[in-house]
Simulated scan of single mutants.
Amino acid sequence: MLTRILVVDDEPDLELMITQKFRKQIREKELDFAFAHNGVAALQVLQANPEIDVVLTDINMPEMDGLTLLAKINEAYPMLKTVIVSAYGDMKNIRTALNHGAFDFVTKPIEFQDLEITLKKSITEAHNLKQAAQERDRLVALQRELEVAATIQKSIVPQTFPPFPERREFALHAQMIPAREVGGDFYDFFLIDDHRLGFVIGDVSGKGVPAALFMAVSKTLLKATALKGGAPHECLQQVNRILCLESVDEMFVTVFYGILDVASGEISCCNGGHNRPFVTRRDGRVEMLTGNEGLMLGLVGHWEYHSSQINLTPGDSLILYTDGVTEAMDHDQNQFTEDRLAECLQGGNHAALPEMINRVVSCVRAFAGGAPQTDDLTVLALRYTA
């Protein structure tokens, strides 16, 4: 790794001595030296060469002395390491320089073995400081990316409940708790016409901004297609074809899409590789849905999807969720599982939907026992009330 050093001294012989002493390192491109004869010239060199790592400067110089230069370097170039050169007996100035941020010092007449050791220490410290700064910048950029992803994710899903307060045939509630590493969970619901309610839950592969953007595209595309009124399998087939044409980096999305006939309680639905929902019956039974389970969307453009039917009677609820629920882990890497979710739902069919969802979240958190949440946790509940 090439290290660049600026030498600031008004003695004309020092440049020749430095280049002679370190000629091997210069030839092998380990070190590269720049020279200035006072503090003013040094600042001009630094401005033109921001890649300089270490400054070796005398204290007593015309126009601008080394202590003034040190103060300006600390203000404008805090990543630089400065080594002070001063007369052997000038301990007062040396102490002042060290107290004001100089990394080390050497005394005149310069002992080049001592200088080489001091420069090696300064170079190591400068490189470590730059590496730490780069790591910090990467973390800041990552945090900003996650904040952007969280904003996208939160803004794209409905937040107002009840969403259709004038409708008495059904009730809806949902909750999404993003993980620290934001993923691509989403949910949505919309009236296709006066008699049909569309609802969807999905989970995009990946994390961060790419997943959030792919989620936004998938959700928007699915809703726009669904509002045309076609059957669920027709909707997923069209969305899948488009995503396969447009998808990048092999991203995909799992989707469960259904249409509730609000007059009869019949649900026509299609599963695109998503977790199978549960039905909680009015009499207390909890059933996992069976039926056709298609491939996730965005992988195979010619995949054929199939719709199936569910019948809800008044008081029955459909519980949709993402794998952040069933795959939540405790400290021993045990998963929450579908069986535990079914147990959690047992007996909660008469509870209000917000209470039912809060119960699921509480069960997952109690199971995790404080283990970090590694995936978004999303639950959507639909109750037929007509």
Rank of each mutant, 00 (worst) to 15 (best):
Q238N: 12
E169I: 08
I5W: 06
D65W: 01
G273N: 10
K29T: 08
D316R: 02
Y257A: 05
A36Q: 02
R282M: 02
D375R: 01
M251K: 12
P314C: 14
D188I: 06
V7T: 12
Q237C: 14
P12K: 06
L98T: 05
L139Y: 11
F336I: 00
F199R: 11
E234M: 05
R167T: 07
D283H: 12
E147C: 04
V279C: 01
F33G: 12
R285P: 10
D53N: 15
P372V: 11
L67R: 03
T254H: 03
R365F: 06
H100S: 13
F252A: 01
A42W: 03
E293D: 09
V253E: 03
E147A: 15
L191D: 07
N128R: 14
F33I: 11
P232C: 13
T220L: 11
A132Q: 15
D104F: 00
M79V: 06
V8Y: 12
F103D: 08
N349R: 14
F252R: 04
D188R: 00
L380Q: 06
I201K: 07
H274S: 05
A366N: 14
L221H: 02
I259W: 04
E145Q: 15
L260R: 01
V45W: 11
A381F: 02
N240K: 09
W303D: 07
D32C: 12
E181T: 10
A36I: 00
I18A: 08
I117D: 00
I156H: 04
P178Q: 07
L115E: 02
R340P: 11
R365K: 15
L16G: 11
L31A: 04
A141V: 06
V209P: 10
L341H: 07
V239P: 10
G298V: 09
Y321T: 05
Q25N: 08
L297N: 06
Y88F: 13
L69I: 08
V248M: 07
I110L: 03
M288K: 14
L221V: 08
H127I: 14
P372M: 09
E327I: 02
L80E: 01
M215E: 08
Q47S: 04
M17L: 15
N99R: 13
A126K: 12
V253L: 02
A179S: 13
A36Y: 02
V217T: 05
A211N: 06
V253Q: 05
N99C: 04
E293S: 04
D65M: 06
M91N: 05
F199S: 07
C363P: 08
L243C: 00
L213C: 07
P165H: 09
H195L: 08
D330F: 00
D332Y: 10
